[in-house]
């Protein structure tokens, strides 16, 4: 029993990190119509930003974490300026945008490789090494910190989107981009906000994941693919769906590891995603008939 709870907490920890990227992918798709596959690059970029800050500016873990978020914001805005703004009004925008973000991640990954080398880097532990025991289950500060900071970030973003003027603009873009542009919401300006916010989420997930695992020029690929899968299962464009999907996949990961073995995690995960998508082609919380027509 303890094992299972331990694994479930593990799963939730991982899911909260991937969930951040999933929500980022989801918001970008629904607000901008951009399938951003350069989150892998933004992830590594933010990780290296945090690493540089730790080395050269100040080593305090919380500061490093915020620098990771800041670097993620810069990376997101960069992708927005390079890909979204020049391409968003061209024909076949979706496929162009996707290929553009892939090109950015190709170039960016190589530049990171050139500057930092293939050797893995490690960020400091942000949350110390404390432990709490609740009902025979040991919770490390690390895990609690990861879960709490992800939930905090997500809450801030959702609150911001619900209550601020900018959030209103972004939600208007999600509902109907044409109508939004008619009532005077600038597509480019909103694009920069959206990419900055999603970049911040990716930056946080990069900082959180790089302190547990490691950081390398291409370490963002797996989180991105997992994030995309979660977003897909939850329904592109739905924050709620992405959160539900992240939790389901986290449980799935824990249970599969327990009963089948770690090798089969991806298999059961994709079997689950395919089943969900065959039943509901637009994901768990996606609207069934209306797709976003960019």
């Amino acid at each position: 029993m303890n094992d299972i709870i331990f694994l479930i907490i593990n799963g939730i920890t991982v899911a909260s990190i991937y969930g951040l990227i999933a929500v980022a992918v989801s918001i970008t798709w629904s607000a901008l119509g951009l399938l951003n596959l350069s989150y892998g690059f933004i992830f590594s970029f933010a990780g290296y930003g945090a690493w540089l800050a730790e080395r050269h500016i100040y080593g305090e873990p919380i500061f490093v974490m915020f620098m990771g978020i800041a670097a993620g914001i810069i990376g997101g805005i960069m992708v927005c300026l390079i890909v979204f703004i020049p391409v968003h009004d061209k024909p076949n925008f979706t496929i162009r945008g996707m290929i553009g973000t892939l090109a950015v991640s190709l170039i960016g990954g190589q530049i990171l490789l050139q500057n930092f080398g293939p050797k893995a880097k490690l960020l400091p532990e942000f949350f110390g090494y404390g432990k709490i025991k609740i009902l025979d289950v040991t919770l490390t500060a690390d895990k609690i910190g990861i879960i709490c900071s992800s939930i905090l970030m997500l809450t801030i973003v959702v609150k911001w989107m619900k209550s601020s003027r900018r959030g209103l603009e972004i939600r208007a873009m999600m509902m109907n981009p044409h109508a939004a542009s008619i009532v005077g919401i600038g597509v480019r300006k909103t694009g920069i906000y959206v990419m900055a916010v999603t970049g911040a989420m990716t930056g946080l997930s990069a900082a959180l994941l790089s302190q547990t695992y490691y950081l390398s020029p291409f370490s963002g690929l797996t989180p991105m693919i997992k994030g995309v899968s979660i977003a897909l299962m939850g329904g592109l464009g739905s924050v709620r769906g992405a959160v539900i999907a992240a939790i389901i996949l986290g449980f799935n990961e824990a249970l599969t590891t327990k009963f089948l073995g770690g090798r089969y995690v991806l298999m059961t995960q994709f079997a689950l995603i395919i089943i969900v998508l065959i039943i509901r082609p637009r994901g768990i919380a996606g609207i069934l008939d209306k797709a976003r027509e960019a």
């Binding site: 979706t94 996707m98 797996t222 994709f270 082609p281």
Partner: peptide, 15 residues
């Protein structure tokens, strides 16, 4: 349809 399928196949590739 469309890009939902593209993302799914990207995941299958990783699988």
């Amino acid at each position: 349809d469309g890009f939902y399928y593209g993302l799914l196949t990207l995941g299958l590739n990783e699988l």
